[in-house]
Design a protein around this nucleic acid. Sequence first.
DNA 1: TTCTGCGGAATGAACATTCATTCCGCTACA
DNA 2: TGTAGCGGAATGAATGTTCATTCCGCAGAA
Lengths: 197, 197
Amino acid sequence: MSTPKRDAIVNAALEAFADHGVGGVAVPQIAALAGVGTGTIYRYFANKEDLINEVFRAQKRLLDRVLWEERDADATPRERFDAFWARLLGFAQEHPRSFRFLEMQDHSPYLTAESRELEKEILVTIVRRVDALRSEQGTTSQTRSEVVVALVWGSFVQLLKSERAGHLTVSEQDLAAARDLAWNMLTESDNAGVTKL
Amino acid sequence: MSTPKRDAIVNAALEAFADHGVGGVAVPQIAALAGVGTGTIYRYFANKEDLINEVFRAQKRLLDRVLWEERDADATPRERFDAFWARLLGFAQEHPRSFRFLEMQDHSPYLTAESRELEKEILVTIVRRVDALRSEQGTTSQTRSEVVVALVWGSFVQLLKSERAGHLTVSEQDLAAARDLAWNMLTESDNAGVTKL
DNA sequence: TTCTGCGGAATGAACATTCATTCCGCTACA
DNA sequence: TGTAGCGGAATGAATGTTCATTCCGCAGAA
């Protein structure tokens, strides 16, 4: 299932896709970057769409692995959240191409049901863990964890995206502030239902 | 500068790009959708890249117009923020294709310096207004407004993106909660610098 | 020698762009 | 008022290019 050439192809494809989008890269370019012949790609993948899906799933699985490594069940909710944030940041910094690729959306027209299912599973795991964290913390917030996860995730992604776009230079302090504000979103009660819509 | 045919082309291109990405649409398809001949597109736009940029700038300008219409200088900071949030939501709901297109990133390889400049200008305006809002509100937060704007913007976008992806159904209450949490991010002091990095 | 895996030129479909031609609305003359 | 002539807008089939995919011959292992 995993051979040196196959891995080289997936890595090269990830690099090229992250830099130019899946539509911006020709298969022979990927082959050249991977150091294999064009035809070799079709020995391992049925077609370009299949390759895109394999790359997508590989990066999703990597993210999932990184997010949950070295968890400490005895830590306080806040400590566990900080650790989660640190792992997320670590992923973005140590696997920048993975992170960029996953945040792109031009691959979504090509994603199969299987890929979407994997994406959903990983999201559900996050929501379940966040939900446990919040009830253990005893938050009074009525906001559903699915919503809170979307908000926190979006914040994180946009912060790094703004930096990449050159709109912003993110300092360590900014990151700490973002983390704290994210924690507030998890735990704070809001006024929904009180304030009129 | 603005003719019926030109407008038809831009609208058709927006619709097609929002649905399939800029790389997923052929120029003759846009022509057919706009009800004009293929060649006509090239009477109004130098090439596909130029068309993409015109569409991008038109949507950015529309967003900018919507964001700042009917502002009430006498309102409290909180009221002004709520109004801003409502206008943002209104834009996303009334111009869903615009919103989707702007949040795509597969057009960014095609964007010219002029387009990027316009994008930056619009962002700078938001940051400036948010900054004024926060100092008028008298927040004790040390976090820079650029950072807070990125966080709030990312939250909003991700919330709607999650709904579109089918991960979530966003209720009126969810939206109100998101708005309140966003307001908290603008005004609350965080622990950055106190908590160790 | 046979067989397996590989390379990269070859192929044909799809694409962006062009350009010879048509079409349309206006002007001016009868 | 009717109509012939003109200029530029519009057209879409044709063009050259690029791409995903195939195919065939080669190299090395058995």
